[in-house]
Design a protein around this nucleic acid. Structure first.
Lengths: 218, 218
DNA sequence: CATAGATTGGACTTGCCAGTCCATTTTTCG
DNA sequence: CGAAAAATGGACTGGCAAGTCCAATCTATG
């Protein structure tokens, strides 16, 4: 690998971003190198100069890019979860997640990339796995915070709760991809948060709670 | 469309099943018509005889086939949910779901098919949407049953709970595809069931319950 | 400035794969 | 049986898309 000049790394970044955008529009399968070339105004040799082993390598770079995007995008909210022990932090995080995916209109490039690369390339699998682990650990930290502050039942295991919550989010997004609606995503988030809150000491057995957090009243 | 003879429909079915199996192994994108031909010992003309508009049409038929498979596979357990109002029914359903996907080893052809066809073909989208709706309504019926029997809080909305549960399952399977592990799937199911049970009238605020159902003890 | 290495343009090759076509065989049914 | 319809075999086409290659240009730096 030759050392990149300023110009070089700019081009490389342009390719990745363009590829990412193209994939969002067309899907991984339908996206060809020529589509990417067209959007990024690059030549064949540039693509293979910066990603010598070709398409796979570029797609992997896109996966990393998308993963980083998700994290930097969520991080402030996740950070709040881990430090505030405050229902409002959870509530606004919930809204952020829903907003993000609603705006994204059900594309989730990472899911698509996983479908295509997951089987073939262990690298892509690792990227996704690490993203999930990171995400989950931040959620778990938030749950632990709540538990230590005595705001949820001490019988809830933070890691299990976080795993379930993450699964709900991923599934909600997946379903959004098929149906176009975010109701499942919202149901997953709201249900999980309601569960946390309902477990709080001092909440009546039937779920009635004096706090202002949304519950699942029928 | 010419009328199918016995032999004809047998061949057609063989193609669909073979395609389904091939896709499980190779993924949708990597599966070519020749792969399917090889496995099903058919000729090009047969493929296009039974699926005149080609690959897309065949894939759609596979999607329908898989959807039907999931439903007939789950139906007895789902039926129990809707009639028994019994924690054991839920527990064994939970085990069935986990078993099914664990045995399947994280392939989920429907997810893969959605990724590839969802964008292009509205037909595939419809198949998945309908499968999800069906599945969800069966779960919701079970939850309603529990509620009417007074075994869970009346404040839980069956449809919302079912939507969240379904999202958790789908997400769990999706994560299994990336990580190879079913812990998220199990966490989603266990958390949801624990939530239902914890909401039962007579359960202590901290989640302590006299019943034998697994809880999320830390 | 000079040169080595980085960057870029784009024509060309290669191979694959969906889809076409027609000839042949098999089945149905009057 | 015998014609019509259905089923099958497999060669062939056409196009597309990934990857190669080399010549031409830029950029860093001594």
């Amino acid at each position: 690998m030759s050392t990149l000049t300023t110009k070089g790394s700019a081009t490389r970044a342009r390719i990745i971003e363009g590829a990412s955008a193209t994939i969002r529009e067309l899907g991984v399968t339908a996206t060809t190198l020529d589509d990417i070339r067209a959007r990024t105004r690059t030549s064949k040799s540039q693509l293979f100069h910066y990603f010598p082993s070709g398409r796979e390598e570029l797609l992997l770079a896109v996966a990393r890019f998308e993963a980083a995007l998700v994290l930097t995008d969520q991080q402030p909210y996740l950070g709040n979860l881990a430090t505030l022990a405050d229902w409002d932090a959870w509530s606004s995080w919930r809204d952020t997640v829903v907003d993000r995916y609603r705006r994204q209109g059900g594309s989730c490039p990472l899911n698509t990339l996983t479908s295509q690369l997951g089987r073939t390339s262990p690298g892509a699998r690792a990227v996704v796995t690490e993203l999930l682990a990171h995400w989950q650990s931040e959620i778990a930290a938030g749950v632990r915070q709540l538990r230590d502050a005595g705001r949820i039942s001490s019988r809830l295991d933070p890691d299990t709760v976080a795993a379930a919550l993450l699964a709900g989010i991923q599934g909600g997004v997946l379903i959004q991809m098929a149906t176009g609606s975010t109701v499942h995503l919202e149901a997953a988030l709201d249900t999980a948060l309601a569960q946390l809150q309902a477990s709080a000491p001092g909440v009546a057995p039937d779920g009635t709670t004096p706090r202002a957090f949304p519950t699942l009243a029928g």
